[in-house]
Nucleic acid binder design. Structure first.
Lengths: 303, 303
DNA sequence: CGACCCGTTGCAAAAAATGACACACACATT
DNA sequence: AATGTGTGTGTCATTTTTTGCAACGGGTCG
């Protein structure tokens, strides 16, 4: 949209931290860029940047304006989606921030099913930890977030929430695989592999261990849930994951068992959006579908 | 704001119903206007108008876009208000739609008090009946609405609500002025003057009369509450008004008495805004003040 | 001090928007 | 049927706006 060009430039300047660099990024001269910014500032009635010897930085007014721009952009996308709806062709773009556990099974299934109905809708999947996901929503970088145990919940509007019990993942021949349900002490007393503290599963584990005056001390820490899932096949060790990220591979190699909820209470997997925002049509529809799937597959027990 | 010029033109075309007329309104030629509209339509990806032999009319896509424009405009005004706040000078504009009863005493006092603190804030007061007020909010023509007995309440967010008992207004020497409280039958049995059906007070009167199998039939119908208030001084007749629009002139000429709430239940005077909208700073502050004043002066009895 | 990067400005060239006019078409009046 | 008036839309010269280039002043770092 051409009428937003000035905003795009301002955003580029804010991102680059320098007029000249931004000018290069946007393929215009520094002088042209500078004059557009100055002209806009005059019209707007306030400077947008602090001019430092080393470059520029957004001042509070600039922050506010940039926020307005992002909100405007988002609303315009929504309108264009609705218009596309009117003309019959469902197109659009869905961007979502999600936890790793959703990647192997749940999200591919959901996206594929949605795209089977609406082939012109494109997707952007951003893997984010709990904190990043909410920041993504706040900056309009993602329309939706699907995260396990989000943190702040400010400006975060819950669309659907389902409980997820922490499961231990291990090789099928692991001794603990005999028991139908594991206790926390079983896990702490055997070598284990887990993600770092910023992930929801680890957070629950740490918290539960501290509560029992124990310490959770993994032999291996890995950011990749996929690596954890595979590693337990190579060494007698247990990993951790939530049910939505687990499925029996069918070859009998992998086993997973729930950990007693009296030791570790079930965590919440939450689908949400930025509070008060009207999502683009495609994102809103996809959110409905995901919410329904979550409820069907993992609801409706009370948390 | 220059970057919204195209939207302004589109709005003008929609309003005028004709390119040429809109061009004249906006002081450009029809060809220039036409090209801007066409160019935008192409960029936007959809036509905005139905081209009829007699002119143009917004199509659904155009309606959606225009709504986006108004929302954008409103948000930009809010941002500018916040920026003005940052720089210390409180300026801005408050537009509100209100019922007539607020005009003689309540609003002038409130606005004057507010402007005493913030002289750079300007006001737009639009007198609207119950239906129009809500439409004003929906189209962003007014930031706030202060109306008696609003109708639809869709997309209407209540900020403050206070009860208002219908009062009879009459000359001090009117026989009914002897009683401390009037019954509905007293009113129906004496000549009366009232506003038309679209006003809240009349609505309550009609409704109450029908309920008692009577009919409310005023001798004079007037849209002007001021005229009603003055007319009862010239002829032995009773008019109707809510307390917020009444004050003893001090010369003993006018009397007003409540009508028993078991005959006519108290109506609601409601301060509200468009649902989900973030108001400009000035409007939000003014709303807070008005809400507090309403609560102090007419609350907090339960309705 | 010189080299470098920063934002900013003057001026001429390029690009975009505009105004004036002509055209095709639909409808109402003559 | 002819005419007149309204509509939207093209064409082209003209005006306005924007841009690129080069230069300037000021700050920082080696």
């Amino acid at each position: 949209m051409k009428h937003l060009q000035t905003f795009r430039l301002i955003e580029a300047v804010a991102r680059a931290g320098s007029m000249r660099r931004a000018a290069e990024d946007m393929n215009i001269t520094a002088s042209a860029l500078n004059r557009r910014v100055r002209r806009f500032e005059e019209e707007f009635g306030s400077e947008l940047f602090e001019r430092l010897p080393s470059g520029v930085r957004l001042n509070p007014a600039g922050e506010l304006l940039l926020h307005h721009y992002r909100a405007t952009l988002s609303d315009l996308a929504r309108v264009q989606g609705q218009v596309a709806d009117l003309t019959g062709e469902r197109r659009g773009h869905v961007s979502l921030a999600c936890s790793q556990a959703l990647l192997p099974y749940f999200l591919p299934e959901q996206i594929a099913a949605y795209r089977a109905e609406h082939p012109r809708v494109t997707f952007g999947v951003n893997v984010r930890d709990r904190a990043e996901a909410e920041q993504d929503l706040a900056s309009y970088a993602s329309d939706l977030a699907l995260v396990f145990e989000p943190i702040y919940l400010v400006d975060f509007e819950v669309i659907q929430i389902v409980p997820q019990t922490v499961h231990a993942v291990m090789a099928a021949n692991h001794p603990l695989a005999q028991k139908p349900e594991l206790r926390l002490r079983d896990c702490l007393n055997t070598p284990h592999i887990a993600p770092p503290a910023r992930f929801g599963v680890r957070h629950l584990l740490d918290f539960a261990a501290r509560k029992g005056s124990r310490q959770f001390s993994p032999v291996i820490e890995s950011e990749s849930f996929e690596m954890i899932r595979h590693y337990v096949l190579h060494e007698q060790m247990i990993g951790f994951q939530i049910p939505i990220g687990l499925r029996d591979p069918g070859d009998g190699s992998l086993a997973f068992r729930p950990i007693a909820t009296r030791d570790i209470p079930a965590g919440s997997l939450i689908l949400g959006q930025r509070r008060g925002r009207s999502l683009p049509v495609a994102s809103a529809r996809f959110a409905l579908r995901v919410a329904a799937a979550l409820k069907t597959q993992y609801g409706p027990e009370i948390i």
